Simulated assay, not measured.
Amino acid sequence: MAAKKNILPIPDVLNPFKVRKERIMNFNPATGTTTRTPAAETKITVFDYSSDNCQTTTLPDIAATFPYLSSSKLSWINIDGLRKEDVHTVCEKFQIHPLIEEDILSVGQRAKMDMIGDRLFCLLPMIYFNAGSATIDLEQVSIVLGKNFVISFQEDPERDVFDPVRDKLQLHGSRIRNGGADYLCYSLLDVIIDNYFVVLDKLGERIELMEDVVQHTPNKRSLARINFLRRQVFLFKRAIAPVRELVNGFLKSESDLLDDKVTKYFKDVYDHIIQCNDLADNYRDMVLNLQEMYHTQLNLKMNEIMKVLAVVTTLMAPLTLIAGIYGMNFENMPELKSPMGYFYTLGAMGILLILMIVLFRKRGWF
């Protein structure tokens, strides 16, 4: 017995005609005013480390982060959950420019990298794949690099992709422990971009599954799923496209905060984001091909239906002609008075039908 093919379940796609689609279209470049809803809670975690040890502390409030500005060690201050007052306080204390503060508090901001004063700032999306709804979830992450500290701002306190960095910070002798703040910044960017490939793998699985579905059941539900998948791929592509220029900004930067040895690591991140963009383009083309495949399958199905109808019509045409002739109300017609005329006519019609079927089968018409 052949092995049963393991097919991933397709999540139900909501009816697009019954669900109101919310789109955030940020055409206004001004970020002075923000519609961001303040976070219900703020979680502040600090990793104060050197090559010898690493101390992890959860702080009760923003004011507790101030001593780390003058710490002799390197500090990673991770703030989960954004509140305007907290962000303003941190930026004011750590001498972060108000323009950077506005970008941190912005909503739907495009990925970017800036250097203002002696602070490097980058903003980019952290992307997750929601397996339950098969959707792409975006979270805006802001990273500020100083001489001996890195501050990261996240929207969602419940999840992130920084666990590999946290694990390496706990390992004695790890490269991140022996590196500077610029290497920590590189590590955060690297793990965010590496997670893009995880999301792409999930999208790739859905695309391959949809290829099988379209080939076997090309119906309206399949088309709705293709359109839904296309929107997710386009959303992913639009989110990561500017990240390439962000990383390129680090490569071209002449800031004293970036050591030449660490800049080489950003080249590796740059290669990753180029590869990620290329894969996203390939998946976008595959989804567009799925739409073409859907229409092709519909046309093939329609052609088969028309072929069957044409064959049936052709088979019935001679029989209809004979029945029409003998249905005319004339007195002098052949076999009209014969007691076996009715059966002779039916037999002739049956033989004619069989001969036509044999002929069509020989020609391969059905």
Results as ranks from 00 to 15, higher is better:
residue 71 S to G: 04
residue 308 V to Y: 03
residue 112 K to R: 10
residue 193 I to K: 03
residue 189 L to G: 02
residue 292 E to M: 09
residue 338 S to A: 15
residue 140 Q to F: 01
residue 233 V to H: 04
residue 9 P to K: 03
residue 122 C to P: 02
residue 354 I to L: 09
residue 62 I to H: 01
residue 318 P to N: 03
residue 264 K to L: 14
residue 183 Y to K: 01
residue 166 R to N: 11
residue 327 G to K: 04
residue 329 N to E: 05
residue 42 T to G: 05
residue 67 P to Q: 09
residue 217 T to R: 15
residue 215 Q to K: 10
residue 175 R to N: 10
residue 340 M to F: 12
residue 331 E to Q: 15
residue 244 R to C: 02
residue 356 M to F: 02
residue 43 K to D: 11
residue 341 G to Y: 13
residue 279 L to T: 13
residue 328 M to P: 02
residue 297 Q to S: 07
residue 108 G to M: 00
residue 160 D to R: 00
residue 309 L to V: 02
residue 328 M to D: 02
residue 21 K to Y: 08
residue 325 I to F: 15
residue 75 S to P: 11
residue 170 Q to S: 14
residue 80 D to E: 14
residue 223 L to G: 07
residue 225 R to L: 10
residue 327 G to I: 07
residue 109 Q to Y: 00
residue 336 L to V: 13
residue 332 N to H: 12
residue 329 N to S: 02
residue 130 N to T: 03
residue 291 Q to M: 13
residue 239 A to P: 07
residue 69 L to Y: 06
residue 111 A to H: 06
residue 340 M to W: 13
residue 98 P to R: 10
residue 272 H to R: 06
residue 119 R to V: 15
residue 71 S to E: 05
residue 110 R to A: 03
residue 322 I to D: 04
residue 233 V to N: 05
residue 133 S to C: 06
residue 79 I to T: 00
residue 23 R to V: 14
residue 286 M to R: 07
residue 26 N to E: 11
residue 157 P to H: 04
